[in-house]
């Protein structure tokens, strides 16, 4: 058993797509709560309280969305009060809250994804689909920090020449464009060496393969199968309206049956899967360490 982070990148990426798909498809309050709880549990189990500030920012976004919706949406039968002659309804607030919760859940999931999916993992996934695009991405990823460093060197050099002044705003702007321009020349002119180095090492002589450090083990296959199964069960529930909810004109939740229970169960397992794996790994380490 391995944590989601250490599984094959394809599995990691597909997990995050699978877990966010149901909440983006359907704004069902309970499903949203499960998703949110799962996303937060994963964040905290991995990084502790380090993301509090980001989360507070996300929370503010949720409240904003929840408040904005009733200002534009006046449907719904339960009128709470009037604002500037427009009705503010409970249904619109509920809808706004759900929309906000969806935003929050998706943001949290993608926050975890950004932490887990490093650039070389994306390259591994892309490489399987198109070796050439993956190579281009890899080259561009190298150039970004390189050019940033070069721009810094150019800024210093131009200042040392007395050609870059940052007194007034137009001066600074002109200076920055100058620095950018020098960097552009530098980057374009030296590209030829990179191209030569590629040719000299056989680029373009045939079909490329894409090498990646990651192996697809049996565990990855098993985990992927589990993820897809849980997703399929959840989608079954969603598409057959087993957990349907309507907001307008009045908030109505359909009768919840066995299928609904199955849907909730499947989605709960899906949402808490990475947390379980992380915790499991931590416990194992704890025991291993106490034996050492």
């Amino acid at each position: 058993m391995k944590s989601l982070e250490r599984s094959h990148p394809t599995v990691t990426l597909l997990y995050f797509l699978a877990v966010t798909l149901p909440v983006m498809l359907c704004m069902e309050p309970l499903l949203l709560c499960i998703s949110l709880a799962g996303a937060l549990a994963l964040l905290f189990s991995r990084t502790g309280g380090r993301n509090i500030r980001t989360l507070l920012y996300f929370l503010a976004l949720l409240l904003l969305i929840a408040l904005v919706n009733p200002l534009f949406q006046h449907d719904g039968v339960t009128v709470l009060f009037f604002l500037n002659g427009n009705p503010v309804t409970w249904e619109a607030i509920a809808f706004g809250l759900c929309a906000g919760a969806m935003t929050l859940a998706v943001l949290c999931w993608f926050l975890s994804m950004s932490q887990m999916m490093t650039t070389d993992k994306y390259l591994c996934v892309f490489g399987a689909l198109s070796p050439k695009l993956s190579l281009m991405l890899s080259m561009a990823l190298r150039f970004v920090p390189l050019f940033t460093k070069r721009m810094h060197a150019v800024r210093l050099a131009q200042r040392g020449l007395g050609l870059y002044r940052d007194g007034t705003l137009p001066d600074k702007l002109r200076g920055e464009l100058r620095v950018f321009s020098v960097t552009v020349t530098w980057a374009l002119e030296n590209g030829i060496h990179t191209a030569d180095s590629m040719e000299a090492r056989g680029y373009g002589t045939g079909r490329r393969t894409a090498y990646a450090e990651y192996d697809f083990h049996a565990w990855d296959g098993a985990l992927l199968a589990l993820i897809l199964l849980m997703l399929a069960l959840t989608l079954c529930g969603l598409l057959t309206d087993a957990v349907a909810v309507t907001f307008y004109p009045a908030l109505v939740r359909a009768e919840r049956g066995v299928l609904a229970a199955l849907t909730y169960a499947a989605y709960t397992l899906l949402s808490f899967l990475p947390t379980l794996l992380t915790v499991q790994e931590k416990i194992k380490w704890h025991f291993l360490q106490s034996k050492i």
Binding site: M136, A140, F143, T183, G191, A195, M198
Partner: peptide
């Protein structure tokens, strides 16, 4: 390919 990568980075 190099040229396009350079332009992406810029």
């Amino acid at each position: 390919l190099v040229l396009v990568s350079v332009m992406i980075a810029l």
